[in-house]
Simulated scan of single mutants.
Amino acid sequence: MRSFDTLDNWHEEFLKQANPANPRTFPFILLGNKIDIDGGNSRVVSEKKVKEWCASKGNIPYFETSAKEDYNVDPAFSSIAKTALVIENDQDIYFQGITEAVSETEQRGGCAC
């Protein structure tokens, strides 16, 4: 429950530190991990509460996962990667302000090593 209660702070602090060009479209994802424990019966945060939080933050995708059992991990990461690629078409979120310099060796298709 403590992790869930601090989500607002983590979300806001991340946006403050990362300072993305458009915070509303920055690709976030929320993972509810350790779903393998007791088959999810020991859940302390209801799915309804989690989905309400995600909706309040612009419909952040939510996945219940188990890293131990490798459950829903790939779909979660595929989802965030696809979202980031869609956004990248509109803006370059990772390399803003950095000019691309390609060496002469790279332009020829060779290696400088």
Rank of each mutant, 00 (worst) to 15 (best):
residue 41 N to S: 15
residue 101 A to F: 12
residue 49 K to Y: 03
residue 51 K to A: 12
residue 12 E to W: 03
residue 95 F to M: 04
residue 86 V to A: 11
residue 23 P to I: 06
residue 5 D to C: 12
residue 6 T to S: 15
residue 66 S to M: 02
residue 113 C to S: 15
residue 45 V to T: 02
residue 98 I to Q: 11
residue 40 G to A: 10
residue 106 E to F: 14
residue 28 F to T: 02
residue 92 D to E: 08
residue 80 I to P: 03
residue 39 G to W: 11
residue 46 S to L: 05
residue 58 G to T: 04
residue 113 C to T: 13
residue 10 W to I: 04
residue 8 D to G: 14
residue 76 A to Y: 06
residue 45 V to G: 05
residue 9 N to M: 13
residue 27 P to N: 06
residue 48 K to W: 02
residue 22 N to Y: 03
residue 61 P to V: 06
residue 94 Y to P: 00
residue 58 G to N: 06
residue 3 S to P: 03
residue 26 F to R: 00
residue 79 S to L: 01
residue 108 R to F: 04
residue 87 I to D: 07
residue 54 C to V: 08
residue 81 A to Q: 09
residue 42 S to F: 10
residue 6 T to H: 12
residue 71 Y to F: 15
residue 46 S to I: 10
residue 30 L to Q: 02
residue 6 T to P: 02
residue 84 A to P: 02
residue 16 K to E: 09
residue 74 D to E: 14
residue 43 R to K: 15
residue 29 I to R: 02
residue 32 G to H: 08
residue 98 I to Y: 12
residue 20 P to V: 01
residue 96 Q to A: 14
residue 50 V to S: 08
residue 20 P to C: 02
residue 48 K to S: 12
residue 74 D to Y: 11
residue 62 Y to S: 07
residue 32 G to F: 07
residue 37 I to K: 12
residue 59 N to P: 05
residue 70 D to I: 09
residue 8 D to R: 07
residue 66 S to V: 04
residue 90 D to V: 00
residue 83 T to C: 01
residue 107 Q to A: 14
residue 13 E to A: 08
residue 24 R to S: 11
residue 9 N to I: 15
residue 85 L to W: 13
residue 31 L to A: 07
residue 69 E to P: 02
residue 108 R to C: 01
residue 9 N to H: 11
residue 5 D to M: 14
residue 59 N to M: 03
residue 37 I to Y: 08
residue 17 Q to T: 11
residue 86 V to H: 09
residue 79 S to R: 15
residue 37 I to F: 06
residue 101 A to N: 11
residue 49 K to C: 04
residue 74 D to S: 11
residue 113 C to R: 10
residue 22 N to G: 00
residue 84 A to V: 07
residue 50 V to A: 15
residue 1 M to F: 14
residue 66 S to W: 05
residue 28 F to Y: 13
residue 28 F to R: 00
residue 25 T to I: 08
residue 99 T to K: 13
residue 107 Q to I: 15
residue 87 I to K: 07
residue 54 C to Q: 04
residue 102 V to P: 02
residue 74 D to C: 02
residue 77 F to A: 03
residue 43 R to V: 07
residue 29 I to K: 01
residue 20 P to I: 00
residue 111 C to N: 12
residue 18 A to V: 01
residue 55 A to V: 11
residue 39 G to M: 09
residue 102 V to A: 10
residue 7 L to A: 02
residue 80 I to Q: 01
residue 67 A to H: 08
residue 87 I to G: 03
residue 2 R to C: 13
residue 61 P to W: 05
residue 108 R to Q: 11
residue 34 K to D: 08
residue 99 T to E: 12
residue 29 I to M: 08
residue 27 P to W: 03
residue 55 A to L: 12
residue 81 A to T: 14
residue 63 F to Y: 15
residue 8 D to N: 15
residue 17 Q to C: 10
residue 36 D to G: 05
residue 32 G to D: 07
residue 104 E to N: 09
residue 90 D to T: 00
residue 15 L to D: 00
residue 56 S to A: 13
residue 54 C to N: 05
residue 111 C to L: 09
residue 38 D to K: 13
residue 33 N to Y: 05
residue 59 N to L: 03
residue 80 I to W: 01
residue 69 E to K: 15
residue 43 R to E: 10
residue 102 V to R: 10
residue 98 I to E: 11
residue 62 Y to E: 04
residue 54 C to R: 07
residue 77 F to Y: 10
residue 42 S to D: 12
residue 61 P to N: 12
residue 69 E to A: 14
